[in-house]
């Protein structure tokens, strides 16, 4: 019981996720800055931003439903934290593995996007409403290719469990090469999920001020931003577990390998963000359905055929 509580609250649960997501934000920002030939923020900047926001006054719009408005950031954070508990960290096995946790994690990760939509809708401001609609439109575009890209390796592994997939590819590392198209699709779709460039239309600063978060301020915005950072960590961890099958038995060494793997994913995501311009929402929908989904579909067909042949 005590160990479970420790696991949930401290490591690898809530506290670790919080600290690691701040570190991740720093790494993301510094790579972004260095690619732009800028100095970049100092190491404590994400923490300073967070503390500053926590100390600021929280303003709630008159027309908004106060309870839901306050609850949404906590929902987002809770969903992300819950998802993190099912991702393998120190070794092949996650904290509480069970058959089908991949699906649960993917659905838990949909909740933040839904809260973004609701947050925008509840704010009853024009900019947030447009941002909310865009967030929803975007969800329908990237979610399908993302799910398919993560389910294709699962089909080959013959299990719906993240730990099971990790174990399978750890045992047969060469099969991961089959999944390279799925990896590329996942990386692109993740940018949509995390609302990062080139798919940051829901909070396109130069069009919609802050999009869905226009009316959020103070502590509530701080929690939302924390949730977004944490989502980045969780998604990077999932990608690392599914597509980078390197695991060792030693817990400490395993943790080090986890850090390296997630950093590699963060690096790829940061580069992707630096070299793209924001595209329009209708271009994004077309791109996702016309190119990403067929590639993901092809991957699933290939994996089913291979599975059948085996």
């Amino acid at each position: 019981m005590a160990l479970s509580l420790f696991n949930i609250l401290i490591f690898p649960g809530f506290l670790f996720l919080g600290v690691y997501s701040l570190a991740f934000e720093y790494i993301d920002r510094i790579i972004y800055a260095r690619m732009q030939n800028r100095q970049g923020p100092p190491w404590f900047q994400p923490l300073a931003d967070f503390l500053k926001l926590v100390g600021k006054e929280t303003i709630i719009p008159e027309d908004a439903d106060k309870n839901i408005f306050k609850a949404l950031p906590i929902f987002a954070m809770a969903a992300v934290t819950a998802a993190f508990l099912y991702v393998p960290i120190t070794g092949v096995n996650s904290l509480f593995p069970f058959e089908g946790d991949l699906i649960v994690v993917l659905y838990l990760l949909t909740i933040p996007t839904l809260t973004f939509f609701l947050a925008g809708w509840m704010s009853s401001s024009l900019y947030s409403t447009i941002g909310a609609v865009r967030a929803m439109t975007q969800l329908f575009s990237y979610e399908v290719p993302l799910f398919m890209a993560l389910l294709a390796p699962a089909i080959l592994a013959g299990t719906w469990s993240l730990s099971g997939i990790a174990a399978y590819y750890h045992a047969n590392p060469l099969w991961i090469l089959v999944n390279i198209p799925a990896f590329l699709v996942a990386i692109v779709a993740i940018q949509g999920k995390l609302e990062r460039l080139p798919f940051d239309m829901p909070e396109a600063e130069t069009e919609l001020c802050a999009g869905t978060f226009t009316e959020y301020s103070g502590r509530l915005l701080a929690i939302f931003r924390m949730a977004i950072d944490a989502e980045l960590v969780v998604v990077a961890a999932i990608v690392a577990a599914v597509f980078f099958p390197i695991f060792v038995a030693n817990a400490w060494l395993g943790f080090l390998i986890f850090v390296i793997k997630t950093l590699v994913v963060a690096f790829i995501l940061a580069i992707f963000r630096s070299v793209m311009a924001r595209i329009r929402i209708e271009q994004m929908v077309i791109f996702c359905w016309k190119y990403l989904t067929p590639v993901a579909l092809l991957q699933i067909v290939i994996n089913i055929v291979i599975k059948g042949v085996l």
Binding site: Q36, N37, R38, D200, A204, T206, S274, V275, M276, A277
Partner: peptide, 13 residues
């Protein structure tokens, strides 16, 4: 213009 379409890398250069 680059910043308005979210292309901050070109903006910085």
């Amino acid at each position: 213009a680059a910043h308005l379409i979210g292309f901050d890398t070109l903006f910085c250069y």
